[in-house]
Amino acid sequence: MRAPLSKYIALAGVAAAISGVFLYAGGFFGNSQLTAQEFVNLQQGANPHAGFRRAHAKGFCVAGEVRSNGALAEHSVAAVLQSTTTPFIGRFSTGGNNPLAPDLSSPVRSLALSFSESPEQNWRIAMNTPPVMAVATPEAFYAQLSALSPDPATGQRDPSRIQAFFQQHPESQTFRNWSASYQATGSLAAEQYHSINAFYLVNSAGERQAVRWAAVPKTQVASNPFAEQNDALRLELEAQLAQAPVAFDWQFTFAGANDDENNPTQLWPESNEQKIAGQIVITRIEPDSACSEILYDPLILPAGVQATADPILRARSAAYAESYRRRAREVAAQHAQ
């Protein structure tokens, strides 16, 4: 029972074809599009800090509650937005991949919230000080981060690269205007934090309303009394929390007829309808273990809130997941030792 060679070749062809499909999908022949792995590689830099988040590595956990007044209840069935109080575990952080960097000098400050009352109502919110993105696609964002990265040889940023990048991306004008006028405060409690990307609120009738939201501070702090220290912002917040909780207004801005909810580079007119959903109240600082497990992926949304098609928003999930996987692997390895 000797089969001709051609049949063995056909057999090898079958094996090669199936293997080839798997290898292709796995990216072994390269990817035509930017991948989450490439993105996180860029964010973590040449010397990743094991066990820490790849972006916004420096930060700390807080606990608090949202006291909702129900003003958004007609627009969304999300439990947090009904007239009720919902606890959260939050995280204040500053931009960059170095968990030991001085926090006061970082150009970006962030506030993330995690509501975990029930699996249906899990909601992760990640807000930053800029109100807009400089660019509108993950590919352009990658190019921006590349341009802003320090030159490996000198350890310094290259102003000519940065300038060239912004010239190639006129959509970054709104961001640059904000950046030029932004004056960092002396406190995490005095910053305004923005959703940047837009989301849809969905009510019980299934009607969708595009919104952006922000945490609007209720205090002013011009200078930081701990400015010489590495953890100046944390120390200042600790001092404030020792006196009283720190509150923000949770302000929603509605998209107008001419606003593109899928473009995070443009501000919406100040005349747009705004509603205050209630107050975000930070009550205390928590140990790192309180939020180390939390993946602040802004696409983890409750019933009543949906993602827009904004390409930057959609790209965040995969990159966050890759960062989470690497961090978890390192923590597991440290744990096993």
Binding site: F22, T35, A36, R314, A315, A318
Partner: peptide
């Protein structure tokens, strides 16, 4: 499922969320 899994962990495109 294997092809979806292999692609979705890499992609930054908008279809990531619905595929996951």
């Amino acid at each position: 499922m294997l092809l979806a899994g292999l692609s979705m962990v890499q992609t930054l495109q908008a279809w990531h969320a619905p595929i996951v």
